[in-house]
């Protein structure tokens, strides 16, 4: 007969893995998760088939390959689209569980840090899978319409890494906001407000207090316009911006999670 007294207490990593698998199960096996996945796949198909690929013809005519033009169009869409999608899909990290008291069952068995960071990692993995699905559709439709190009898979992998990096701070923002509110809709609303206000504030700071302008590295999406100017692997030269923002937001979220009443 095994009891909690005789079992070896699980490590933090083991606990986080259990927490992550439950979230992945929610995203990809629950009814609601499958509805979201189906809707996302359908709209991705529409965007790629009727937006990304057709508009690549005019870009390709200005120079470069058709595949390059398709991926540039994809980047233009995904660099803004996935962060916005994050505000909705990653909004329910801890808020609803705290609201209904489910976190009270969980927090007696693992630390708040484990809960907070495993929910964040889960959402990163879920978003990466969504990005991967869109890229699989992109490669499949491109191959179907344009024929096979050996560069398509490496380009898709690079896009997964680049767009994946872009969404890190947005998932971290939702992790932070989710600690503060109870409902996903509230989290999305406050994250949107926070994102807009911080951009306006930094605009004002740059205008009137230029000495503080370097702080704009903390504004989510500040690197997006520069990212769209860069091509392929060179986009990773701006990855540090996303990681700094993500680190700051996670530290703030962890601090609040440790002090929040459950």
């Amino acid at each position: 007969m095994q009891t909690s007294h005789t079992l070896t207490p699980p490590s933090s990593l083991a606990n986080m893995w259990v927490l992550i698998t439950l979230e992945l199960s929610r995203a990809f096996t629950s009814r609601q998760g499958l509805i979201y996945l189906g809707a996302f796949s359908f709209f991705s198909y529409l965007f790629i088939n009727y937006g990304v690929i057709p508009f690549a013809f005019s870009r390709a005519e200005q120079g470069g390959t058709m595949l390059g033009a398709i991926f540039q169009n994809y980047y233009s869409m995904a660099t803004y689209g996935f962060p916005i999608l994050c505000l909705f899909l990653a909004a329910n990290q801890t808020g609803p569980d705290r609201e209904r008291g489910t976190l009270r069952f969980i927090s007696l068995r693992c630390s708040r840090d484990e809960i907070f960071f495993s929910r964040f990692i889960s959402q990163i993995l879920i978003q990466l899978i969504y990005i991967a699905i869109s890229l699989v559709l992109l490669v499949a439709l491109t191959t179907y319409q344009q024929g096979y190009d050996a560069n398509s898979l490496p380009s898709a992998l690079l896009a997964l890494i680049n767009i994946g990096t872009v969404i890190f701070p947005f998932v971290a923002l939702m992790a932070l906001v989710s600690v503060l509110v109870k409902q996903p809709r509230q989290a999305t609303f406050y994250a949107g407000i926070l994102w807009s206000l911080s951009s306006i504030l930094m605009g004002l700071i740059e205008e009137y207090v230029p000495v503080l302008a370097p702080l704009n590295i903390l504004i989510l999406g500040m690197q997006f316009s520069d990212l769209n100017e860069l091509v392929g692997a060179s986009k990773m030269s701006l990855a540090h911006v996303a990681f700094i923002q993500c680190g700051v937001l996670l530290l703030a979220g962890r601090f609040l999670m440790g002090r929040k009443s459950l």
Partner: peptide, 17 residues
């Protein structure tokens, strides 16, 4: 963890599972 457990007042299970 695992040594102390509780029935919290009004806590509900996750409706998804």
């Amino acid at each position: 963890h695992g040594q102390v457990s509780a029935l919290p007042q009004d806590a509900q299970f996750d409706p998804a599972f």
